[in-house]
Amino acid sequence: MLRAFAYQKPASVKAAAQAAARPGAHILAGGTDLLGCLRDGVFTADSVVSLSGLPALKGISANPRGGLRIGALTTLADVAGDARVQESYPVLAQAAASAASPQLRNQGTIGGNLCQRPRCWYYRGDFHCLRKGGDTCFAVGGENEYHCIFGGAPCFIVHPSDTAPALLALDARLSITGPRGSRTIPLSSFFVLPEKNVRAENILAAGEVITEILLGPPQTGARSLYRKVRDRGAFDFALAGAAVVVVMSDGKVSAARIVLSGVAPAPWRVPEAENLLAGRPLDAGAISQAAAAAVKGAFPLSKNEYKIALVRGILEETLASLA
């Protein structure tokens, strides 16, 4: 049952940023995650700052310098269904389409998808864990089947977003407006690991709002896809997944981006695997070596060692299908 909170609907991004900077304020975009968190008492809100009065943040348009500009309030359904996205950035269309359920994709926004809170059942449930200000990560020694194999400690969440790995594989940039102005950053510098900050999943400061996501022009010869493995066919987060972009030239990989989902507290790029593919045809040997390289350094907990085999399997399957 929701507790009472104040509701605001500012008419400008600047006003929204100022309202959201106040202590106890939370930003409301699609609301599919925020309302669940408030209802479940994961955290509380004194005020909720709705972005629904900012239609300029919604929609997809061509970037004058090539590529696309995706407003942060564009729904996942609109991203998944956009012909330009499907044509030039299939990895993103597939990632957006694989999130949640049709109802949630119609309501949830791509900006919100990047900012959603982790789905760790200790964080979401009645457990006073590290991420909520407690002193224990219950996943260590607990039910950690769904937890991370990379980048954990002291907290072992996985980042829940499907679109984040796709956007990272596309070298996307984010425009952010805060109470003190605007900035544009590469998405690769957006996420933070628990070792740096165990209470947040990204660098947004109080009051900062993502306004748009910028994609560069599509590369010639690029092939991409997003593959997600989950316990059930819809309305589920990734056990593990991969956003893969390979640029082929003369039958060989000239550049590769592989970003994993469901295995780390942030979308997890595996440069060792990418490097192994560079300059080689996508043949069985290269694929197998890259898949093995991707899981080097994995640190499984007591119940999630399967994710190592799963990541390898996903990469073997997906790279072969891009060949």
Binding site: R124, G125, G142, E143, D231, R232
Partner: peptide
């Protein structure tokens, strides 16, 4: 049902983590 062995509490007492099949299954 997933019982958290160290705390004795149910870990997945909600319809996201307790997974009934969807139309896609």
């Amino acid at each position: 049902r997933v019982m958290d062995q160290p705390t004795g509490k149910m870990a997945n007492a909600n319809w996201h983590d307790y997974k009934i099949p969807t139309a896609m299954d």
